[in-house]
């Protein structure tokens, strides 16, 4: 009984709004705003009407969605490796950040889409250009947060490790990185949402596949239910990827006494 009540408390407003949306769009009959049921129908038609042999998935899934997903995850993974690696090195160096700190803060403030033309002429249209755009945009929060995190190792922890003659390898993997992890995860979450945005943007510029391309293309064809479907998909992707990352974070930061306060509240209040 209490679970039913809990479910109602959590979802009744959401469902109510969806119903309201349905009624309003049916009444208004505006082509820009198709009712949610029409969007759902379109989603089924677009992606889930494929043959049994392909798990009912259509070509769109294989041609557009999966490659896009691959670009986001590929680009973001590169950014993670680069950001955590460089960030650890810079955080441990006493003067490293003095040299590159302002430069990186400036790079972080650049709107990444405006560099797409430069990446385009340098790398030509293709996966490399898209990956470069995603990596350039999403690496900074990871890098700067890692530096911050690495610096959060306190003097007593350093003395303790030194008094045990902790070799470099163990010092980094057992002390420095775990100490930095809460900050790193905050950076990872931010950079994942940036990576998703840049995936869409890089696909809007002169390519012929991917979610971003389909989104623009459906708008240009005036196929508004399809346009809404792609928007819903992007929302779902954003939600799903973030939820996955949060699950990993909860596992890895389970040791935190107050992990509830910092992670759960800032991300899922």
């Amino acid at each position: 009984m209490s679970t039913v009540l809990g479910f109602l408390r959590r979802w009744s407003l959401f469902l109510g709004l969806v119903v309201l949306w349905e009624l309003a769009t049916r009444l208004a009959n505006d082509p820009f705003f198709p009712p949610p049921t029409t969007i759902l129908q379109k989603i089924g038609e677009l992606w889930f009407s494929g043959p049994v042999s392909r798990l009912f998935l259509t070509d769109d899934v294989y041609v557009d969605i999966l490659p896009s997903l691959g670009r986001v995850l590929g680009g973001w993974s590169i950014a993670v490796v680069l950001g955590v690696g460089l960030g650890t090195a810079l955080g441990r160096s006493r003067t490293g950040m003095d040299y590159v700190g302002p430069l990186f803060a400036f790079m972080r403030a650049i709107p990444p889409p405006t560099l797409i033309p430069v990446f385009l002429v340098l790398l030509s249209i293709g996966t490399t250009m898209k990956l470069t755009t995603i990596v350039f945009g999403s690496v900074w929060p990871i890098l700067l947060n890692t530096v911050d995190g690495v610096r959060s190792v306190n003097a007593t922890q350093r003395d303790t490790a030194r008094s045990f003659r902790t070799p470099q390898r163990y010092w980094i993997t057992l002390v420095v990185l775990p100490a930095a992890l809460p900050k790193i995860f905050a950076g990872l979450r931010l950079s994942l949402s940036i990576a998703l945005i840049l995936m869409v943007v890089s696909e809007m510029v002169g390519v012929t596949d991917g979610i971003g391309f389909e989104l623009i293309f459906s708008q240009q064809r005036f196929d508004f239910p399809a346009m809404w479907s792609w928007i819903v998909l992007l929302g779902a992707l954003g939600y799903g990827l973030n939820a996955l990352l949060l699950a990993v974070e909860r596992r890895m930061l389970g040791w935190q006494q107050t992990s509830g306060a910092t992670t759960a509240k800032t991300s899922g209040a």
């Binding site: 306190n154 007593t156 922890q157 003395d159 303790t160 030194r162 008094s163 045990f164 003659r165 057992l174 002390v175 775990p178 100490a179 992890l181 040791w255 935190q256 006494q257």
Partner: peptide
């Protein structure tokens, strides 16, 4: 440098123990 067979116990145990390790 720190000798091999020496160990130190610090006053501030809450900082000296690593919170992420059991």
């Amino acid at each position: 440098g720190v000798p091999e067979d020496l160990a130190v116990v610090f006053q501030d145990y809450s900082r000296s123990l690593f919170p992420w390790l059991t």
